[in-house]
């Protein structure tokens, strides 16, 4: 069919997003769970708390630590990843750096905020889902942030041309099959400012296509923010009603 991708979406449609706050029954200060299509990510946040090691003590700001666990059953093949796996470390550094600049760390000097992410199922957009889950978990934990950090992916199909022979629109929110096929990037914006706090692209793409991909990614981030904000408000309302008994 014309103009539809392999899962029936149009170029600017997001996958189904389902998110929840405070999912964890453990003692984590904040937790969240997000599903973007079939990508499922769980996030727990602890802190601010005493740093686990002396080296992590910073005199004027909190240290942000991130740990990412890929479940062995998360991909199509069963792969058990160790702590030193490159992909794991990459994700950890990216998330840690992104949130170290968005959390108001100067309010909690000499303490540590730990973000612990479990990836239960991978179907494309893993980094984006992790960033979104972390934002929600931080909000649930009550840790002050500058604003929401919402992330989304976009891809540029280079082999399919439309009727006029020009390149088609970039695809929003690529899934695993699309990710392995076409170049894609992940972009994360802060709140509604459309300013980019994180950008990651690992494929080759012509520089002319870049602007389009980033623009589509940013519009996707705005949509994601709307969905996340609605869930946060809904959850907040339920908690408020439960507390005040109305």
């Amino acid at each position: 069919m014309e103009g539809l991708r392999n899962d029936g979406r149009r170029w600017n449609e997001l996958r189904r997003i389902h998110c929840q706050l405070s999912t964890s029954s453990t003692n984590a200060d904040g937790s969240s769970y997000i599903e973007q299509g079939f990508t499922k990510v769980l996030c727990n946040v602890t802190g601010p708390a005493e740093p686990s090691s002396r080296q992590k003590v910073k005199q004027d700001a909190a240290t942000v630590t991130c740990e990412v666990y890929f479940a062995a059953f998360s991909g199509t093949d069963r792969i058990k990843r160790g702590r030193n796996d490159k992909k794991v470390q990459e994700l950890q550094t990216a998330i840690q750096k992104t949130f170290a600049s968005v959390i108001l760390t100067h309010l909690f000097s000499r303490s540590e905020i730990t973000i612990s992410i479990h990836i239960l199922s991978q179907d494309g957009g893993t980094l984006a889902a992790c960033i979104n889950a972390t934002t929600l978990a931080l909000i649930d934990a009550g840790i002050p942030l500058k604003d929401y950090v919402c992330a989304c992916t976009s891809g540029q199909s280079t082999s399919i041309f439309d009727n006029e022979g020009s390149t088609p629109d970039p695809w929003l929110d690529v899934n695993y099959l699309e990710e392995s096929d076409i170049p894609s990037l992940t972009v994360a914006t802060v709140g509604e400012t459309e300013k980019i706090v994180a950008l990651s692209m690992e494929n080759k793409v012509r520089i002319e296509m870049l602007e389009g991909m980033i623009a589509v990614g940013i519009s996707g981030c705005a949509k994601v923010k709307g969905i996340m904000d609605a869930e946060v408000r809904r959850y907040g309302k339920t908690r408020l009603e439960a507390a005040t008994g109305e």
Binding site: N27, A28, A49, P51, S52, K80
Partner: peptide
């Protein structure tokens, strides 16, 4: 069978992070 324990949060007083080791390797 492989069991992975992740603290996911504070596991006890004074332990701070409580991210348990990966076990069942």
């Amino acid at each position: 069978v492989s069991v992975e324990v992740a603290g996911g949060g504070a596991s006890g007083p004074g332990s701070g992070m409580g991210i348990g080791g990966i076990s069942g390797a």
